[in-house]
Computed example of a mutant assay.
Amino acid sequence: MKPRQQLDLMNKIIRELEDLKNSQTSVLKKIAQIEADNINLNEEALSDALPEIHERVDDSIQKVSDLIDKCQASRNTFEQDHQSELVEPT
């Protein structure tokens, strides 16, 4: 794979990871809303299960965020190391 193709694929993966993080954040917001609604309802099954689900989704968001940071650092290093190969001929 040529350096330009590799860089493009790295960028695509980072965008997909960002999209995944945004989706997980939406899920976390929905869980929080259900938790808030359950304050009035006081359904025991929800009270028992939701905190763990909330924690797992939150942990997942953090792991994806860390992965995004690592991928961006790797991408930046790759771009610097292959700068001369990435310049488009004029």
Rank of each mutant, 00 (worst) to 15 (best):
P3A: 12
R4V: 12
R4L: 08
R4A: 10
Q5H: 12
Q5I: 11
Q6L: 07
Q6G: 01
L7K: 08
L7E: 06
L7F: 05
L7P: 02
L7S: 07
D8E: 14
L9R: 11
L9D: 10
L9P: 01
M10E: 11
N11P: 00
N11K: 08
N11V: 01
N11F: 00
K12P: 01
K12I: 03
K12T: 12
I13V: 15
I13L: 15
I13W: 06
I13T: 14
I13R: 13
I14M: 09
I14Y: 05
I14S: 05
I14H: 05
R15F: 00
R15P: 00
E16W: 02
E16K: 05
E16Y: 02
L17A: 10
L17W: 09
E18D: 06
E18H: 03
E18P: 00
D19A: 01
D19I: 00
L20E: 08
L20M: 15
L20Y: 08
L20A: 15
L20W: 04
L20F: 11
K21M: 00
K21R: 14
K21C: 02
K21F: 01
N22Q: 11
S23D: 13
S23G: 08
S23E: 13
S23V: 04
S23Q: 14
Q24R: 08
Q24M: 14
Q24S: 11
T25S: 10
T25Y: 05
S26G: 04
S26Y: 08
S26E: 15
V27L: 10
V27R: 02
V27M: 06
V27G: 00
V27S: 05
L28S: 10
L28F: 13
L28N: 13
K29I: 05
K30Q: 15
K30I: 03
K30P: 04
I31H: 01
I31Y: 04
I31N: 02
A32I: 06
A32P: 00
A32F: 04
A32M: 10
Q33R: 09
Q33S: 10
Q33T: 11
I34G: 03
I34E: 07
I34Y: 07
I34S: 06
I34H: 02
A36K: 15
D37V: 04
D37P: 02
N38A: 06
N38Q: 08
N38H: 03
N38V: 04
I39S: 07
I39N: 06
I39E: 15
I39C: 01
I39G: 02
N40E: 15
N40F: 11
N40T: 12
N40P: 03
N40D: 15
L41G: 09
L41Y: 04
L41I: 07
N42H: 05
N42L: 03
N42Q: 12
E43A: 09
E43N: 13
E43P: 01
E44Y: 09
E44M: 05
E44R: 13
A45M: 11
L46A: 08
L46C: 03
L46P: 01
S47H: 09
S47I: 06
S47K: 14
S47L: 13
D48L: 14
D48E: 15
D48T: 11
A49I: 06
P51M: 08
P51A: 08
P51H: 09
E52K: 02
E52L: 03
E52G: 06
I53V: 15
I53R: 00
H54R: 15
H54Y: 13
E55R: 14
E55D: 12
E55K: 14
R56Q: 14
R56D: 10
R56G: 01
R56Y: 03
R56P: 00
